[in-house]
Design a protein around this nucleic acid. Structure first.
Length: 106
DNA sequence: AAACTGACTTCTC
DNA sequence: GGAGAAGCCAGTT
C-alpha cells in the first residue's frame, strides 16, 4: 500500500538526520530525497517550525550555492557556521561552504 | 476553502 | 559574476 503514512515534513526530517557529520546538504537535495525535487522552499519552512529541533541537524542544511540561510536558532547564521566548522566543514573566505568538498555526496 | 508566507531554485539581463 | 524577477511546494492563518 502506498499510503502516505508520514508527512512530507517527516520525510525531510528523516533525510536531514541521515546527513553525515562534517557534510552539508542543500534544500534542493533534501527535497529531492524527500520525493519532490522542487520542494526546497517547503523544506525550509519545515525547518523553521522545526518541531524536532534537537533531532534534526538543520545546521547541516544550506542553500545550493553554499550560503547559510535562515537558521532561527541561537547565534543565527553565525552560530550555524560555527557549528559546521566545528564538524569539519570547510568554509571559503566568502563565508560560503566548499560544496565540492563538504557537500553531501548523495 | 482561499490566500499568504517563507531557512529555495533557476532563468534572464 | 552579480542583480532582479518568476516559479514551485507545503504549511499556517
Amino acid at each position: 500500500m502506498v499510503t502516505k503514512n508520514i508527512l512530507f515534513t517527516e520525510k525531510v526530517y528523516t533525510v536531514v538526520k541521515k546527513i553525515p557529520k562534517g557534510k552539508v546538504a542543500t534544500y534542493g537535495q533534501i527535497a529531492r530525497l524527500a520525493g519532490n525535487p522542487r520542494a526546497a522552499r517547503a523544506v525550509g519552512m519545515c525547518m523553521k517550525n522545526n518541531p524536532y529541533a534537537p533531532v534534526v541537524p538543520c545546521h547541516r542544511v544550506v542553500a545550493q550555492n553554499g550560503v547559510l540561510t535562515g537558521y532561527s536558532g541561537k547565534g543565527g547564521i553565525r552560530g550555524k557556521q560555527k557549528l559546521l566548522k566545528a564538524e569539519g566543514v570547510y568554509f571559503l573566505k566568502n563565508n560560503k561552504i566548499h560544496m565540492k568538498q563538504s557537500g553531501w555526496n548523495q
